[in-house]
Design a protein around this nucleic acid. Sequence first.
DNA 1: CGTTTCCTTGGACAATTGTCAAAATTAATT
DNA 2: AATTAATTTTGACAATTGTCCAAGGAAACG
Lengths: 215, 215
Amino acid sequence: MATGMVRQMSAKQRVADVVEALREEKFNARRIELAEAALATLGELGYARTSLREIAQKSEFTHGVFHYYFADKLDLICCCVRHYKAKCVTRYDDVSATARSRDELLEGFSAKLAETLRDDASMHRLWYDLRSQALFEDAFRGDVLEIDQSLENMVWRIASRYAELGGKTPVVSPGVLYALFDGLFQRYLLKHLADDPRAIPDLVAEVRRLLPSIC
Amino acid sequence: MATGMVRQMSAKQRVADVVEALREEKFNARRIELAEAALATLGELGYARTSLREIAQKSEFTHGVFHYYFADKLDLICCCVRHYKAKCVTRYDDVSATARSRDELLEGFSAKLAETLRDDASMHRLWYDLRSQALFEDAFRGDVLEIDQSLENMVWRIASRYAELGGKTPVVSPGVLYALFDGLFQRYLLKHLADDPRAIPDLVAEVRRLLPSIC
DNA sequence: CGTTTCCTTGGACAATTGTCAAAATTAATT
DNA sequence: AATTAATTTTGACAATTGTCCAAGGAAACG
């Protein structure tokens, strides 16, 4: 009888847990929906010029909803950053997975780089903007450092695969390699946004020259 | 008589010109005073969180003065950026001018780098912040691109002097070299501001390893 | 079906923002 | 010394901001 009671209770408990999990999942899905909408406006205007109300106005949601799902503005932005990460960090993985030769990998990588600069410029300027905010705001630092690490890993996967296909090993550390590519991308992103038509081809040319000399 | 008139007029004109020039110089000196005060607050809070009124409150000036000397907020920030450039761009020049050997130059450069990271972190985070703003705001782009170019030149002066002292030439272009050092500095600046005690020594170690392998 | 919980709306609120202008003060000129 | 010009102060202004809340509606549940 006592065990029956216990079993019944724990069954109830299990059901409640599942229900709770579903609720939380739904809650989280909505958060991501909202974060996605926020990212569009943030990418267009940048962190400094974006207010919660303008995010709401440029989306299908009211500003009240954002306050219901996020404690405050920082909470929203943090969620945006985290969500952005997931989309960004595996961007080049299929390139290095499918490439069968050094040339193919270099070709695929630089093509993808060009595509990124052309099509996702506003998402990447937002990334640089938010990373700069992390220099001032503690709350961003953890997420930003984590994303930076993930990007470093991604670049390293490309580079070490490229070296492997040539029977070599990269001559620099993952950190240095990431700093180099990050610095380059940032530079050509600025030029591209300043309507320099040579930005994309120059970046591609630079990478094509650089990668074989490093890996 | 006619020539006398003309001579008199042009003398008057010259005096007026000098007076006008003095007035403008004074006006400009005041602008720089104000920009200097603004830079302190901007470096502390970052672009997004800094308002004209807070700049004024944290300085000895009233907010009205800023409006008297600057057309608007953008004008003030642009003046700040330009003024910042002049202070920053010659930072490492005496190092490469006085160094008599490769080792001395490398030593001096990495020491100066460490000092910069330690003492001027907030000015440099402001630089990265403003450069990110240039990704969104046209008005900043010209100045930012110009400063970027000046910094690239500065890095190149160091590197080519270092190579020269070893009878070599750098193996990468000025642009790539700047991208590398810029990316590295940005990275370790973030770590340093996140209270990572290894940030400064790690940056120094990285540069000491890197520079001889490139130049 | 009724009730309770969850979600959404839209407005109210105080605080802050950039901008401007009319006085007050100071410096320059005659 | 008197007048003119330049500089600074101070307060007002409308617009925008993040935050909070009360009411209504939808959905889940017994």
